[in-house]
Computed example of a mutant assay.
Amino acid sequence: MEEERLDFVLVPLGLFLMGIYHLWLFFTIRSHPRKTVIGLNAQSRHQWVSSMMSDPLKNGVLAVQTIRNNIMASTLLATTAITLSSLIGVFVSSFSNSGDKVSASVIVYGNKSPTLSAIKYFSILLCFLVAFLCNVQSIRYYAHVSFLVTVPTWKDRKDSMEYVGRNLNRGSFFWSLGLRAFYFSFPLFLWIFGPIPMFVCSFIMAFVLYFLDTTTTITRKLHSHSFKEDQRNNSVEAAGNLV
């Protein structure tokens, strides 16, 4: 294969591989959520909200502290993303102002396409901007849930608990998307050194994300036992209240 054509073959293949994997992950979350870490954690968060809101006066401090930790994690990722975006913008603008072309060093075979340098840096910048926006939205939902989870008047109201659980899951989903944008920036960053490292990184990243996103049978059984015990405790408490 001609050296200058590697960018037009390996890079689309790497992006296609990552896209196919995330498309499979999306449909798996929708159809079989318990087979994925994202779906299983969403059910656990619903259970946690029900537990915290069953007695908000007693569990209010614990709930707010837990959500605060999530806000701090999202703030750290958002700060990192916007900082890296600013550095890339300053780096590209400095080369543009000096009249030099922004091109990567020729280190790996196939990296002789200086016309694609702008696309490479713009792709990395776009990943970090998406990560920043997703983490900002995550902070927004977490801050909203920190108020809702401690409302005493919502005790024993299932519809209110479901609403708080949905908002908490939305914040967690935005956090996952922001973290996923960081993962996606690794192949794009290696694209600076050529299409071959980018394709290899995309291939390895797909396998790594598969092991991180899927659950084992043992994990699903542990969560199932936890859900059953929680439902049994709720039934006992309801019977006690009736007596």
Rank of each mutant, 00 (worst) to 15 (best):
M1D: 03
G14W: 01
F16M: 14
G19T: 10
I20V: 10
Y21G: 09
H22Q: 04
L25S: 02
F26P: 02
F26A: 10
L40V: 05
N41P: 00
Q43L: 05
Q43I: 04
S44I: 11
S44P: 03
W48G: 05
S50D: 08
S51G: 07
M52T: 05
S54A: 15
S54E: 13
D55V: 12
P56A: 07
P56N: 05
N59S: 14
V61F: 07
L62P: 01
Q65S: 02
Q65R: 07
I67Y: 02
R68G: 12
N70G: 08
I71T: 05
M72Q: 07
S74H: 00
L77Q: 14
T79P: 13
T80R: 14
A81S: 15
L87P: 11
V90R: 15
S93F: 15
S94H: 09
N97G: 09
D100V: 12
D100R: 10
K101A: 14
V102K: 05
V102Y: 12
S103L: 13
S105Y: 05
V106C: 06
I107R: 12
N111L: 07
K112W: 00
P114L: 03
Y121M: 14
Y121Q: 13
S123H: 09
C127F: 03
F128C: 12
F128W: 14
F128A: 09
V130K: 09
A131M: 10
F132I: 08
F132T: 11
C134P: 02
N135E: 11
N135A: 07
V136S: 10
S138I: 06
I139H: 00
R140H: 07
H144N: 11
S146D: 06
S146I: 04
L148G: 00
V151L: 08
T153E: 14
W154V: 15
D156K: 15
K158S: 15
D159R: 12
D159C: 11
V164Y: 12
V164N: 04
R166W: 07
N167V: 03
L168N: 06
G171C: 02
F173S: 08
F174G: 00
F174Y: 02
W175T: 01
L179G: 15
A181K: 11
F184W: 02
L188H: 06
F189W: 10
L190D: 13
L190N: 09
I192P: 05
I192G: 14
I192K: 10
P195F: 06
P197C: 01
P197M: 00
F203H: 04
F207T: 04
V208E: 00
L209M: 15
L209A: 06
T215H: 08
R220W: 08
K221F: 08
N233D: 02
V236K: 09
V236C: 02
A239W: 10
L242N: 12
